[in-house]
Amino acid sequence: MSPYRQLAFGVWLSAATWSATYMFWPESESRAAPTRDDIPISPSHFTPATLLSSETTGPNSKLLTLKLPTHLVPFPEDLNPVWSIYMKDSDIQVERPYTPLEGIDKQGIMKFWIKRYVDGEVGKWLHSKNVGDSIEIRGPVPTWAWREGEYDELVMISGGTGITPMYQLIHHLLINQKSTPSTSTPRITLLHSSRTPVELPPPEILQPLKSLAAAQPERFKFHLFVDSPGNLSSPASHNLQVSRIGTSAVQKALGLSQGSSWFKRKSSAEATKIDREKLGKRVLFLVSGPDRTVAAIAGPMGRNLSQGDVGGILGEMGFTSQDVWKL
């Protein structure tokens, strides 16, 4: 490994510690971070990127594509998921993290699905940008460290733009693979919920996931939920379930159904409890989305963005912090 590559990789390895420290820095400290355009992107400074495209995908969402100059691109193969990039609203000097859907390629391309919230200044600012505008970014900052061979199965539960870290990991493990996935690659089930069909992720996200589920059903399963059908006359034709993600959906994701021997041995009061050892597989739940979604599925986050206790549906089913990670 060249000295330059060692340096870049070392910056990446230290990013987790750096980002944890950063979360508690006074805001004035981040405003003082320098902007550099002569060295690769890093959590320690801002880097100008160019907005290549801005596509409206829903009433309050856009698909943005950014490009870095190639000499500022880190080594993509060194960036294991899940990681994010901070984007800065240069008008008010505030930044927020966003997850690049496919990571970053060697040409410096990154794609983001970003929602505009009424009280979200950075999201509104990003939605106002035009193609060709410069956007300052900082990162990559690790969100969760994927480790090969640690789990037999991943059950991902997301709401809204919370699908973006899930997509990044799925893209890394399955979509972007040039050959058959390793036997140590876990089976993945993704349960995603949006309020209405018009708020579902755009085709750029949904179609690769649907194609993957059809091509590799033994490796990947994908289920969509909406709270309301909206103006859609036939949700079934779009493979949508008009309901919230609940206990039964989680049970099915684990391969447990009401007709299985598992439930025949259980009383109705105990039916939602899961004996992890009897599952016969190492399962991890990844949960991401709006605060209300995360709280309903896995309990709220703790203070200072810590994981907090496991509650919600997964807590009622008997899962603990060993089995659940909130992104």
Rank of each mutant, 00 (worst) to 15 (best):
D275L: 12
S54F: 09
L101F: 05
G318P: 05
K273W: 09
G120P: 00
K252R: 11
G10S: 13
S194A: 15
R31A: 11
L169H: 05
V287T: 06
T185L: 15
E136Y: 15
G246Y: 09
D119S: 12
P300R: 07
A32G: 09
K326V: 06
T70V: 09
R187I: 07
P43R: 13
D119R: 10
S42V: 00
G108P: 00
S42Y: 01
T164S: 06
L68C: 07
T57L: 07
A296E: 10
R5K: 14
V118N: 15
E29Y: 08
D152S: 11
V310D: 11
M156A: 13
R187D: 04
Q93D: 14
I175M: 02
D291S: 14
V226Q: 08
G312E: 04
L232A: 05
Q107P: 03
H45G: 01
R96F: 13
N80V: 13
E136L: 15
A295E: 12
G103E: 04
A213L: 01
V131E: 14
P142R: 02
S158Y: 07
R36M: 04
Q168Y: 02
D291E: 14
S84W: 01
P186D: 06
S260C: 05
M317W: 12
L63E: 00
T161V: 06
A249H: 04
V242Q: 08
S90I: 08
E102L: 11
I135S: 03
I92W: 06
G318R: 03
F220C: 05
R303D: 11
D38F: 00
I170L: 04
E136N: 15
E95D: 12
Y4E: 15
R282Y: 02
S234A: 15
Q168G: 08
L72R: 02
P235I: 11
S233A: 15
K326P: 06
F75Y: 13
L63P: 05
Q251F: 05
L212Y: 03
R276P: 05
L256I: 15
N80Y: 10
L212S: 04
D275V: 07
S90G: 07
F285A: 09
E77F: 05
D227Q: 13
P81H: 02
S134D: 05
E55Y: 00
K67H: 04
Q322D: 12
V11I: 15
W25C: 14
L154W: 08
E204S: 11
K111M: 10
R147I: 07
Y167H: 14
W144C: 06
G120R: 08
T99H: 07
S182D: 03
I313C: 05
L286R: 06
S193F: 00
G108Q: 01
S257L: 07
L72I: 07
G280A: 02
F46Q: 02
G162Q: 06
H71D: 10
F46Y: 10
E77K: 14
F222M: 00
N176D: 09
P208R: 07
L200M: 15
L190H: 03
F9A: 15
D37V: 01
P69C: 00
V226F: 10
W125K: 04
Q93S: 11
P97I: 02
H71R: 06
W12K: 00
I170M: 04
L232H: 09
S211F: 04
T272H: 14
I245S: 12
T293H: 12
S268T: 08
T56F: 13
G108F: 02
T65K: 01
L200C: 05
S30L: 13
